[in-house]
Simulated assay, not measured.
Amino acid sequence: MIRNFLKIAYFIFTAILPPLVFLILFFAISMIIYKHLEKDISWVDAFFWITHPHAISEHRRDITKLFAFVVYVGIFFFQVWFIERILVNIFSGELKILWRKRMSEVVISKLKNHYIICGYGQVGRTVVDELIKLNLPFVLIELNESIAKELIKEGLNVIHGDARRRSVLISAGIKRAKFICTLIDNDADNLYITITAKMLNPNIKVISRAGNLRYAEAMKGAGANEVIVPEYEGGLVVGRMIARYEKAGKD
């Protein structure tokens, strides 16, 4: 969380750095010119005249008064430049993502009895869509940074990280979650996440994806409540369709 605040501060600082540098130079040059035009004033007076041009008395030289107007216009220009730089960065994609990520972290820290989805592949995407339709709270853990950023832009609660890491699961609220779905397209990773999740929260229910039946048995042995083998399940569905058509044909 602190890291995100520092990133936001850094982006804002880098945005205002160019106008800030030019503003300092503008002040220095203006003070030198004021000192040159009115030799009886101090450096403090020269600085004060930049920010308070109305303080220049009427008996001063006309050229000084004209230069004061130039300084006034210059200060106005810098104000506009500062505001433009800040607004551009506030509404730019990167800063918006950082801010939404920070807000997402706050929401995630308060979630209870929620679902944790590991992986936003084809299966994970379908599960997320269903959870949104059912209006159920969830946290998505996605390793691909570009995908995570796009989903954060959409307002989803997303953690960019490796679901195999304990710290990432803890950030997702594993100890307060009701379900975790390990849907990564790698059986070994899903098995490892299942074991880690059960270690961190023995009461959590686990739904795992497996690529073959051998890993499915291993995941069940590791504590998974349900194991889905998409290829196997798809084959069964096709088999049932064939049986239904065959039965209809005989009738």
Rank of each mutant, 00 (worst) to 15 (best):
M1I: 10
I2V: 14
N4M: 04
F11M: 13
I12R: 01
F13M: 07
F13R: 02
T14M: 09
I16G: 02
I16E: 07
P19Q: 02
P19M: 04
L20M: 13
F22I: 07
F22C: 06
L25D: 06
F26Q: 05
F27G: 00
Y34N: 11
K35F: 06
K35M: 06
K35N: 10
H36C: 05
E38L: 04
S42V: 01
A46M: 05
W49A: 04
T51P: 00
T51R: 05
H52P: 01
P53D: 06
A55N: 12
I63F: 10
I63T: 11
T64N: 04
L66I: 09
F67G: 04
A68W: 05
V73Y: 12
F77V: 09
F78H: 07
Q79V: 10
V80S: 13
W81H: 08
F82N: 06
S92R: 09
K96G: 15
L98E: 12
R100D: 12
V107R: 15
V107A: 11
K110C: 09
Y115F: 15
Y120F: 13
G124P: 05
T126D: 12
D129H: 13
L131W: 08
K133V: 07
L136A: 15
N144K: 05
A148Y: 01
E154I: 03
G155V: 04
L156V: 02
N157A: 03
D162I: 00
S167K: 11
S167A: 10
A177C: 15
A177H: 08
A177L: 09
A177Q: 06
F179C: 03
A188F: 11
A188Q: 07
I193D: 02
I193V: 14
T194C: 12
T196E: 14
T196R: 07
M199K: 15
P202D: 06
I204M: 07
R209M: 11
G211C: 11
Y215A: 12
E217A: 10
A218R: 13
M219I: 09
A222K: 03
A222E: 11
N225V: 03
E233G: 00
E233C: 00
E233D: 11
G234I: 01
L236A: 12
L236Q: 14
L236F: 10
L236K: 15
V237D: 12
V238Q: 08
